[in-house]
Design a protein around this nucleic acid. Structure first.
Lengths: 362, 362
DNA sequence: AACGTTCGCGCGAACGTTCGCATTAAAACC
DNA sequence: GGTTTTAATGCGAACGTTCGCGCGAACGTT
């Protein structure tokens, strides 16, 4: 297994210099005679030297490791962005010589904080990425208090100042609502999350803004709140469709795709033609969205870019200590119009042309 | 940030012993006088001591870290088991004092192997978990050659001997095929993967076995191979349904849920009632499966158990060097019968009773 | 010719552990 | 009562780096 490892001393001996000199060359902290430098590189090559991570970290008091933990998705739902987010992050990390360390997410606050504290105290990580950030997030409080580097994917309390990046969900909802209004809809229902949901509230604001700009009064009966699951979307839509003709919505905006799918099923069971009799939109643009019948209008988050950004930012903070402005960056999502809201964008989802006909707004 | 860290020496001084003694107590390599032991624990508690990871690893030549890398899922598909698999693994790892390190997956063989080599040479990991294992997998070859610990989720060449665990996909297909035969189906089509697919071949064997046992001849025209995407399922099913009545299948077994969903859409477009006119089954039991109309019969893999097992096994190998028999463990998946194959198991997917009516075979 | 300055490199120390052996005192043996 | 065993702890070294300082030689400057 771990046989006789090649160390700096081996390289140094072969190159005929002291081992510290080799170290300095590797870390580019020194100018060497051209000839010596070549000799050393050659020796490194010949012996196949790789610096020992733990020794380096011990001495430098740096771990070149970023910690990440996230809440597991419930069994009846998959996290549509996890894979891409992770891949994006560790590609970005690798490019700067870092790796990502995963550790379990605990729901009990104390155990959760303890997990972060242990990693810090053990010197295993140089910083953290946070996601699924909520109001009063104890992790943010703790890390700020210890003055330990982190970057969050998601906003928290508006008055808190910390490095974060977030998708402007409000902008997404603003656009989709505008899109529906432009198509002539007035009674637009929302399948929303509970009031405590920070993400939900951010998104809802965009809906209110678009409605206000179009001078359409808000009907509180059309805003239904639930746990964001498919069957809530289904039941809520049944309820909406049981309203009288003058009250019933002509469009439903769901805050995620699962609820939208539930809504589609409920509407189809009642024989309604989605996109014609009733418009439905989702959020997240899960891969399946374009394959549904009809294809689902949705809002896509720039996950890859967020992963890149969040890591770049964290490493900048770790290495330079400086937190660049703006503290919190908002990136706009992309509205993807499909036949579930606009029947003109229809056709079989499998023909090449149909796929291209998806209207990517912006 | 990293302020004055509490070290063994601090603890030792406060407890009035040498720092090596404290180390030995922590590692339970020594018997101490009851009173001294208490004093030391108290000091550890008082000062909030946490061992420094890099120092420990440097000295012990062990990293307590497990490396994992996996191919990113294509943009039009989500990996339905990734989240659960990861969570399971790092929960198991944490319980034994290990963490998981993620690193990018490269498709070019050389870069891929280089990534593994670098982590080994740098001493950053004690072992690896492999997944998405294929025939002639170069990673297996390399790690075996270096005699470096690893455990694979998935089989490779039948003649290779290495620690692995895999879902018995053949058993899954055997059961679903038997299930369909018992319902009176004879012409059972398969939406399969390309011939080079190891997973696909393993699964197919179960189909052949069940057909052979029922003495039903294989019709090669009913075995269609594609890339495992939704639209292949769609097109393949269109093709199958265009066959003459005597040749057309009465049941379609898909090797994953996405192809099954495509098949359902194609069949429904032709006005067929799924579960009655045509039976369709999938594989993976993605969360959405039970919410489809009709709910999709599928095969669920025991992912959590696999994650636990794979980690336990790897740590055993790392710590004891011994590779327990059997080298490769096969675990059976679970057939979940829903209305897409058996209309008796129907009803709205959202009523409590309906959910319970899902028949979990075995 | 004497004197700074830069260049090229070496040296000792330290990072915080673990490990094996040495040491001391008390207890047990004959 | 001297010798051997056992229990409880100490001591020095090592793991493979990085870091700051130092030192001789070469180089230009006055």
């Amino acid at each position: 297994m771990a046989k006789n490892r090649v160390t700096l001393k081996d390289v140094a001996q072969r190159a005929g210099v002291s081992y510290q000199t080799v170290s300095k060359l590797i870390n580019r902290q020194i100018r060497l005679a051209e000839e010596t430098e070549q000799r050393i590189w050659q020796a490194i090559q010949d012996l196949g030297y790789t610096p020992h991570y733990n020794a380096r970290s011990l001495r430098a008091q740096r771990s070149f490791t970023i910690g990440y933990s996230w809440p597991p998705s419930p069994p009846d739902e998959t996290n549509p962005i996890l894979d891409q987010f992770l891949q994006s992050m560790f590609v970005a990390a690798e490019a700067r010589g870092y790796y990502l360390l995963m550790f379990p997410y605990h729901y009990e606050v104390e155990k959760q904080i303890a997990a972060y504290a242990d990693l810090i105290d053990a010197g295993r990580v140089d910083g953290f990425i946070l996601s699924s950030v909520e109001y009063d997030d104890p992790r943010i409080r703790y890390l700020q208090e210890r003055n330990f580097p982190f970057v969050a994917f998601g906003r928290s309390n508006p008055e808190w100042v910390f490095p974060c990046i977030d998708v402007d969900g409000g902008q997404g909802l603003y656009e989709v609502t505008q899109h529906l209004i432009a198509l002539g809809h007035h009674r637009i229902a929302v399948l929303a999350w509970p009031r405590e949901s920070r993400v939900g509230n951010n998104r809802l604001e965009g809906y209110f803004k678009a409605m206000a700009e179009a001078a359409i009064p808000i009907d509180e009966n059309l805003i239904l709140r639930g746990e964001g699951k498919l069957d809530f979307g289904y039941r809520a839509t049944q309820q909406l469709l049981s309203l009288s003709l003058t009250q019933r919505p002509t469009a439903i905006v769901a805050l995620n795709d699962y609820m939208a799918i539930g809504a589609m099923q409920a509407a189809q069971e009642q024989g309604m033609r989605i996109g014609e009799d009733l418009a439905i939109s989702g959020f997240d643009d899960i891969p399946l969205a374009r394959y549904l019948t009809p294809p689902l209008t949705s809002i896509r988050q720039p996950i890859w870019e967020i992963g890149q950004h969040v890591i770049q930012r964290l490493i900048d903070i770790i290495e330079n200590g400086q937190i660049p402005e703006p503290q919190c960056l908002l990136v706009p999502p992309t509205l993807i119009v499909r036949a579930s809201t606009d029947p003109k964008v229809k056709a079989s989802p499998f023909s090449r042309t149909a796929t291209q006909k998806e209207v990517i707004s912006r």
